[in-house]
Each structure stands twice: as structure tokens, then as C-alpha cells.
Amino acid sequence: MKKTVWKDVLLYMVLIILACLFLFPLVWMVISSFKTESRIFMDLTSFNAFLPTDFTFANYSAVFERIPFFRYIITSTLYVSVIVVLGLFVNSLAAYAFARMTFKGRDVLFAAVVALIIIPFESILLPLYLIVDELDWLNTYQALIVPFIANAFNIFMFRQFFLNLPKELEESARMDGASTLRIFFQIVIPLSKPVFITVALLTFITHWGDFMWPLIATTDESVRPLQVGMQFFFHQPPVKYGHIMAALTMGTIPLLLIFLFFQKYYVRGIASAGMKN
């Protein structure tokens, strides 16, 4: 019995040390965002760095004065949400065709789509930029959205799920004279809620972190997403630790909310993505 107590103590110690390692940067970030610039530097060399030795909102108001922070958040939320919504639509429709319909060239087409999963986005960056420029889309929401609606991997995920659905319901609906589109919306989608939520979450999180593409495709502040906006702010003189900490702290909030609300689905989602492959 004694042995297990010691084991627990040891475990807790390891856990606490690791937790400190994982949390100290974030704690410092949040705490510093409420301190004046000189206080941040003064506290750096002592444990005070992690204690609220000061309490001011000045850094936060400075952020809003210096950059259109809300605008960045709205831009990011808007464009990522549109990718998610249109993406669910387009990709699930395609996946349904590949899973359930018989038509000439289907298997070749699907094989081609699967093969596309392998192309890394980074290798098509420049030509994509030139195409988007040709369409006169630079500095517009279209540039941020349209190229990312169709997603080969998501089509693949949807198809896997649809293949595992029992066919009986769809067939009896067809007997009743329902159109394919109607079957899809009325029967298939309600049955496929889990995969829709998983794909939506994964898409949202992926594109929320988008950096390289918005960096080059948008130069106007009016369509600049949060990640790029924060990077610009980081380099924009005068560089103040407090201001940047405030911006970073606020920048974590949206994703934090997503995780809080969708925690259950999220964990299940990444886990299922893990199992399937």
C-alpha cells in the first residue's frame, strides 16, 4: 500500500513539473498583458513574471488604437466559416456521388481525387497566386475562400462514412419517388451528423491557422485575417511587449471558445481521423 502512495506522489511531481513547462509561456503572456511595459521588464528576472503585480487595461486599449483588431477577428471568422459551410456542401455532395451513384468514369475520377491529397499546398503557392491574380481576386474574400472549398481529403472522409451507411432507407425513399438530391438532404445528411461535425471542426481549425496564403493573397487591411494581422503588429514599431501580449491573448480567445463548445466532438473527431487511416 505504501508503495502506491509513493508512486502517486512521484506521478504528481512529474505531472506538475510538466504542467509548469507547458503553461509558463501562456501564463506569462496573459499576466504580462495586464502590466505596464516597465513592469514587464522589471519582473522578468523574478517569479513576479508570473504574478499579477500590476493591473492595467492600457495595453488592450492600445491594441485597439493601433490596429483594427476586431476587424481581423471578424475577417478570420467570416472567411473561415464560409470555407467550412461551402466546403461541407460541395465535398459531401461529391462524396455521395462517389459512394452511391453509378456513372461512367466514376472510379477513375475518384482515384484522381484521392491522388490529389498528396499535393502539398506549399508547392502550388505561386501559380495559385497568379491564377487568383488573373481572376482579379487579390485582396478579396474570394481569394481566401474559393480555392479551399473543395478538399480532396474531406471528400475521402465523407465517402468512407457514406459507404458505411445502411442503404435501405435511401432505397425505400427512392421507391417513394424521392429525387436523389432530396434523399441526400433528407436522409443522408441527418444520418451523417458526426462526420459533418468532424469535418467542419477540422476545416475550421486548419484554416483558422492559415498564414502563408493570406500573407500573399491579401495586402489590404480590409481583408487581413487575424494571424497575418498579429504578425504585422509584431513587427510594427514601436514594439511594445505589453501591447503584443494583449493582442496575443485576445487572439487565442476565438479558438478557445471553439474548443470549449465542441470539446466532445473535437476529441472524437481527431481520434476517429486517427483510427481510420
Binding site: N139, L215, T219, D220, R224, F232, H235, Q236
Partner: peptide, 12 residues
Amino acid sequence: IPSGAGHAYEDK
């Protein structure tokens, strides 16, 4: 035209 940091204006 907003320039920001980096070469946003030049890109434009």
C-alpha cells in the same frame, strides 16, 4: 493603400 509591415504595398 495599407502598407503594414513586410512588403504588402509592393506586393500590391
